[in-house]
Every structure is written in structure tokens, then in C-alpha cells.
Design a protein around this nucleic acid. Structure first.
Lengths: 211, 211
DNA sequence: GAGTTAATGTACACTTTTTCACATAAATAG
DNA sequence: CTATTTATGTGAAAAAGTGTACATTAACTC
């Protein structure tokens, strides 16, 4: 499966959940395409490639789709996540309640500052970064979110990999690159650079696409 | 200029700034490719298309590149930004100091809660959402960051457009779609969905690319 | 139950993006 | 000064992705 397709599938999944809560039971490729911001042809092609079949003229059963896509996306597996760097952004993410519907759980935070990790007034326990290995093992952590300052990003990244956390969501302005670990595993890294996003927006405003 | 290329250019710009602070003066397409995570051929092709020329065997002058790319990216223009929704994430972004090096300024926040907007202990003033039009005009705001709960996202979006803010960075889980305004202008919308990013990471971990 | 309509499924054409390959120019070495 | 090395610049090929068109099937209509 390619990357763009994966993005689309997570979008479909999300949109389908919305449609379901509204009370719909069936959906047409065209509707889903609108909701996910793609063309209807691509929706059909995606499903076709994934072995998902609808009913001619009847569209697709939302429930079936959610099950199929859910399996593909690995719903039901443990999706435990830790936060490295409990500054403002890290704490904000800890309190964020948009993860649960997707089965993602923030199970712990880490910080280098004793004042932070000895403070118990957080939704999840915060540990000193030195304890990362044991916590990762004990809580079956599979992904980590990096919300540390720029200069600490590489170190956090290495510690995560060393602790066996192969999924990384990086909010620091450094672009972290996936590199195979000693045991040959390849981490999955997504970099979100907020300043960069804004820059792109300003550019696109300045030079609108004429299309 | 296409979208992927724009992303690459902002990456080049950022990487070049780093290389410059290290003390380098020249850079080869190959180095920059590594730093930006693309292939060397694509770096050369990008520059070629942008009319940027290096020296055969000598690579590219970092300073010249930064000037050229800076012009393309519109550095030097006012890049004033407001934050809609001053919850934890909104406040965290207000305190974020990674915008300044890029010339981006957060100039105001907006919230619907009187307890929030009457509190003066923030780095920038916070106004009730009803005052958005006047503030946008007075402060020459060109972009807005949406950090409100899901149910308020569409409303925030519409208010921004109505106030004339055509650049939108949306952190709410709703995917906002650009739609031409009454006066025919097309907004630029970037959606960042954190849960979705994590989901993709979990998927990629589960089914590693074999390549 | 024949005709019409509505939606899927997919082959094919088209477009965009990336890589390859190599000509070109500059610097260095002998 | 000639040969060699190194990196740019770019046309052509390859690959990837998208859209179009239409055959196919199912439901509805009369």
C-alpha cells in the first residue's frame, strides 16, 4: 500500500465514523469522496485494490467498510503512546481527548526536569527520561510523540529507538529521518513542523494557483 | 510551482539555515538532498526550474540560495497570524518561539469564553471572537490557526473567511475544505490531524514497507 | 418482464513526478 | 597543458498517480 492511499484510508475511516453517527447505513463512492476530499474514481479504485466490494447500485455498507478498514488499520491492537517533553505542547497533547475514539492511548510522559516529573497533577504519570526503557516495556508502548525543544530532539529520538519504540511523531522543528536500527528494524517517523506549514500557507497566499 | 515542490523548498530553506549556522558556505545538491530527505537529482531539478544556478564542481553558495529561496517564499512580507481557540493547544502555540526565526508573528488570540479573553496573562492579547473583524483589519492578519474543539471548527472557519483571513492552519479533527468566497478568492487551508498521523504510524508499523 | 436508471469495477489514456544518463564546465593533479 | 575528477544541468525514459469512459450489475418503473 502506498502512502497517499494510507492517508486516504484513514480519512475514509474517519468520515465513515461520522456518517455512521449521523445514522446512515450505506454510502456511495461519490459521498465518501466528497467527505474525504478526493474523486469518486479513486475511492472505488482504493476499495477495489483492498478487496472491498460494494453492491452495484447499492453503494457500500458503512458497517462493513468500517470493519474492513478497521482491520487494515489495525484497530483493536494496542496503540499505546508516550510523550517525550512535557512542556506546553506535550501537556496539551496529554489532555487531548481526540485520541480515544481511535483507540490510541497516551500512557505516560517523560521530561528531564524534576519539577515536571515530580508533579502528579497530570492525566498520566510523568517519568524522568532515564526510566524510558522500563516504562516502555511495562506499558507495551509502540509509539512516541516528541515535543521537546530543538536541541533535545535528536537525543529524544535516539532514546526512543533504543527503548524499542519504532513509531515516532515529531513536533520539533528538526526533521528526524528514519534509520535502520542495529537489529535491522526500520522506524516510522512523521515530522510535523508547524512553522513550516504556516510558511507554506503564506507562500500559497502570495502566489495563488491559477488553475 | 507545485505543492510538493513548495514543501521541498521550505525544507531546503530550513536546512540551509542550519548549515549556515554550523559555518558552512557552500553546499552540494547531494548534501542538501540528504538534509531535506530527497534525491540529489530532484534538488538540482528544483533549482534548475527556479532559475537558481550553482557552480559546476563548486556546488551552491548557501547565502545566495537563502536569498533566492527567501524571495520565493516571501520572506520580509508581514506574516501576521491569529489563534482561534485559546485552550491548551492554542496557548501552547502562543508561547511557541519557533515562529520568529521565520518571520511569522502571532499577534492575537480569540476565544468564546470570557474567563479566557479577560485574562491578561498571555503573551498576546485575547479577544472575544465577535471582535475578529476589527482586529484582523487593524493588525493586518493574513493567517489564522484553528485550535478549537471539533464542534466549533466550522464556525471558526467561516468567521475567519468572513473577516478576510484567507490562510488557515486547522488543528481540529474536522477536515476543512477550501471553498471560494463570495468575492471569488480561494482560501488556503492546511489540516493537521494529530490522531490521524498516529494512526498512520501504527499502520506503517504493523505493515512495514518491504521495498 | 422489458426498459430505464444508478452505481460499481476496471481497462486505458493522460498527466505529473521522479529517476537515469550523460553532456558540460570547473578545479585539480601530474 | 593534458588528463582526470567532481559536481552541475537537463533531456529522455520510467514510474506513479489520476481521471475518463464504459461494461457490468442491480434495482426500480410501468
Amino acid at each position: 500500500m502506498n502512502n497517499d492511499q494510507l492517508i486516504r484510508i484513514t480519512r475514509y475511516y474517519r468520515s465513515l465514523n461520522r456518517l455512521k453517527t449521523i445514522g446512515l447505513e450505506k454510502v456511495f463512492a461519490h459521498n465518501l469522496a466528497d467527505a474525504a476530499g478526493v474523486s469518486a474514481a479513486i475511492v472505488r479504485k482504493d476499495f477495489s485494490q483492498l478487496g472491498i466490494h460494494g453492491q452495484k447500485r447499492g453503494g457500500y455498507e458503512i458497517h462493513d467498510l468500517l470493519v474492513s478498514l478497521g482491520e487494515i488499520l489495525g484497530k483493536g491492537d494496542s496503540q499505546n503512546c508516550i510523550i517525550i517533553g512535557c512542556g506546553r505542547i506535550g501537556k496539551a497533547l496529554m489532555h487531548y481527548n481526540g485520541f480515544e475514539p481511535d483507540g490510541i492511548r497516551i500512557v505516560a510522559g517523560f521530561d528531564s526536569d524534576p519539577l515536571v516529573y515530580s508533579d502528579a497533577s497530570h492525566p498520566v504519570p510523568i517519568y524522568p527520561i532515564s526510566r524510558i526503557d522500563e516504562v516502555v516495556e511495562a506499558l507495551q508502548v509502540t509509539a512516541g510523540i516528541i515535543t521537546v525543544p530543538e536541541q533535545a530532539a535528536s537525543d529524544s529520538y535516539e532514546r526512543l529507538l533504543k527503548a524499542g519504540v519504532m513509531g515516532i511523531l515529531n513536533f520539533s522543528p528538526i526533521t528526524l529521518k528514519p534509520q535502520a536500527t542495529e537489529d535491522g528494524r526500520m522506524p516510522v517517523v512523521h515530522n510535523i513542523n508547524i512553522a513550516l506549514e504556516l510558511e507554506q500557507i503564506f507562500y500559497e497566499l502570495k502566489f495563488p494557483k491559477v488553475k
